[in-house]
Design a protein around this nucleic acid. Structure first.
Lengths: 215, 215
DNA sequence: TGCAAATTTAGGGTTTACCCTATATATGGC
DNA sequence: GCCATATATAGGGTAAACCCTAAATTTGCA
């Protein structure tokens, strides 16, 4: 029997998942948690095999942080991320946080049960759509992109560019100041986005400031 | 017997709502619709008393429009808006579009059943939280406390947009999430740049974080 | 009741950001 | 010498950000 914990503050959702699972003989819902605290408290006990975790979009930091905490603290427990959004960068970040599966909230009963079974048996579950997005990301991973939450290793040039970006300079202005081409600056900016695992400059600045990589 | 139509393209949600309703003797789920077209087709027939409508219907981008269509075309049929968002302006607009009730997706079984019963009997149903949001939305209570240093006075909408920017969302994504046009978001973004006196988003995020206007 | 603030939307435009594939050089380690 | 890294550069794209003018709505307030 696979014991599942549902972590979602939306009651309708928890009901829905539970309803979908109820037909299965090998899977049972062991716990429903509506808060982060209750999740951590319940996991401190034993007996949870799989966590169905809602990564709610407006509060990304919370969901991702909890995902990371669970996979680090309880490596045996598998996390399946649940979300309404098929945003590419979000999927990548969730996987980096250690999630073994990713499901959209319009998933079917069949897919849900299969995903739980799959991750329980030490495998990853991602459907074709999700896999496509992840595969497109593989060339990027050649570069040193440490997981989110950790400060990436920046080259001297990258640090320089990062600080200039945070001062509000455009790529053209940075190129002038550094006596290099616009293309060179674009390359470093792109490297920064990759290393920090963020989709755009706005989140780059916020993340870099939180990690004290600026000034 | 109150006959309910569930309009939501998220399978888990439909299951959840159906599960919550299944215990009731006076309410039954008459139809589940995953597309806008199926909703209109089903309503063209008779026998639907209440529509549980997911406002964040992705396929139209305009759950509000569907809400308006239903309440105009079938005045007898009551619409209860279902959403994950407790956005004040959205609630007001939904009400204006003719919805008789507004429920967040973390609603309880008791509340859901009570809401259906209430609107079926020609009344409106809004819980305390929603009512509070509607009352607090008056412009009187809207201003952010100016307080310290060079921190500009931001309108509620501006604060909202600022935080979404800092989370890495694009203008298009924010427009979707806030249920407004891209032009509206562009306006608020532009207002933020002006109020903070910065030339671009990168410096906006840095400045706003230093002034603790984010989070 | 008229005014001001806040919010929304529109059309049209320019600039910048961002992504892809490639190539080239210099450096330092094995 | 070979290899990995850092750096710089190019061309050709798409998407997003940014700027301007203009107007409609709602709401609270004087």
């Amino acid at each position: 029997m696979i014991r599942v914990l549902i972590a979602d503050d939306h009651n309708v959702f928890v009901e829905g998942i539970e309803s979908l699972i109820s037909g299965s003989a090998e899977i049972q819902v062991a716990e429903r948690c509506y808060t982060v605290q209750s999740v951590t408290e319940r996991l401190a006990q034993t007996g949870i095999d799989v966590v169905l975790l809602d990564i709610s979009f407006p509060q990304i930091e919370d969901g991702l942080g909890l995902c990371e905490f669970i996979t680090r603290t309880y490596p045996v427990t598998k996390v399946i991320a649940l979300t309404m959004h098929d945003d590419a960068s979000l999927i990548k970040r969730v996987v980096k946080k250690g999630a073994k599966g990713y499901l959209l909230k319009n998933t079917t009963k069949t897919e849900l049960l299969q995903a739980i079974q799959t991750v329980y048996h030490e495998k990853q579950y991602f459907n074709e759509t999700i896999m496509q997005i992840l595969l497109d990301d593989s060339p990027k991973n050649r570069r040193t992109s440490s997981g989110l939450g950790a400060r990436p290793n920046l080259t001297p040039r990258e640090s320089e560019v990062l600080n200039l970006i945070s001062q509000g300079l455009t790529t053209q202005q940075m190129a002038n100041q550094l006596f290099v081409s616009v293309k060179a600056v674009e390359f470093h900016r792109s490297s920064l986005l990759m290393k920090f695992g963020v989709p755009n400059t706005a989140l780059l600045i916020k993340t870099a400031m939180e990690l004290h990589c600026i000034d």
